[in-house]
Amino acid sequence: MDIKDISPDQVVYFSLGPFDLNATIAYTWGVMALIVLVSIIVTNRMTASENMSRWQNFLEIVVDFLRRQIADISGEKPELYMPYIGTLFVFIAVCNLLSVVPGFLPPTASLSTTAALAITVFMAVIIFGVIKRGPLGYLRQYVKPTPMMLPFNIMGEFSRTLALAVRLFGNIMSGVKIVAILLAIAPLVFPVLMNALGLLTGMIQAYIFAVLAMVYIASATRIERERHEKTQTTQGDSDG
């Protein structure tokens, strides 16, 4: 199999010295531009009346769904996490949905893209953990239940980041390649079914990635929340 069939990173459109403009970068920029353009169009036509556009109605459903998922997972108000988790979900979902467009190479089929997304999750866990628990409170979790667990807890952080990247990359890349193989074997039958299945799988993968990111972030802030709830309960019992 040609290496170009494995990763869009190897499809180079333009080179200038050590810099290459490959399919992953080009289509990532394209997806980002599309998301920004649609967002501008929809937000410029937003209305609070019942005569809202279908796009606004659809996006409100998506936003409400994400807000409820974040609130259920974190047990907190979703406003703090919504911009990041929502951006993750929308970007991955759009990349995966556009994979059915002939000639489009989804950036999420590249390990470099999924690794970059996983790294942002890794950094978000630290940032939200520090915001909620403070620097010392967040770092203290790495030496619990004993200081001997420090290297294992650190390895756990890196391993789940790697797992996020490989899971998304493997699922999207394999789906794209299966469709390409079936298109060559039976161009009139299998592609339609596989594209429909690919759309469903792409949305599921976007949802799973966003949910796992929120789970990791929630785990980094849960101890502080539980301590706060315990304090409130103790105060309530004392008042009673």
Rank of each mutant, 00 (worst) to 15 (best):
I25C: 00
S112Q: 10
V100E: 11
V11A: 01
A196W: 00
W29K: 07
I3L: 05
Q205I: 04
K177G: 05
Y81D: 06
T120C: 06
P102H: 08
A163Y: 07
V31F: 08
V143A: 13
S39V: 13
L183Y: 12
M203I: 14
D72K: 14
F14Q: 10
S74C: 05
G75S: 00
E226P: 09
V94L: 12
P135V: 03
D5A: 07
L37T: 09
L97P: 04
E60F: 10
M155E: 14
K144P: 00
G236A: 10
D9R: 00
I185L: 13
L80G: 02
A93R: 00
F158Q: 12
P102D: 11
I178F: 02
I119K: 09
R225S: 06
L199G: 11
V189Y: 10
S74E: 03
L182W: 11
T114R: 07
V192F: 15
K132E: 11
T233F: 07
A48R: 13
L98D: 01
K4V: 07
A71C: 10
L193A: 15
R140H: 08
Y13P: 01
I127A: 04
K144Y: 09
M155Q: 13
S112V: 06
T43H: 11
K230I: 02
I126V: 15
S238D: 15
E224W: 06
Y142T: 04
G198V: 01
V189E: 04
V101H: 03
W55H: 12
I208N: 01
I178Q: 00
A71F: 09
P145S: 03
S219H: 14
Y207M: 04
L98Q: 09
T113M: 15
R67T: 07
V125Y: 05
P18Q: 11
A48V: 10
T231C: 06
I73M: 00
Q10N: 15
T24N: 04
I6H: 03
I73F: 01
R140T: 01
A48G: 15
A115T: 14
Q141H: 08
T221L: 03
P191Y: 04
R140C: 02
G236D: 06
F169M: 04
L88N: 04
S49M: 09
P8N: 10
A210E: 06
Q56S: 03
V215Y: 03
I25Y: 04
K144G: 00
D64Y: 10
L105P: 01
P187A: 09
R222S: 09
F158S: 12
I61G: 14
F19A: 08
K132D: 12
F152Q: 15
G17M: 08
T114I: 11
Y142H: 09
I208C: 02
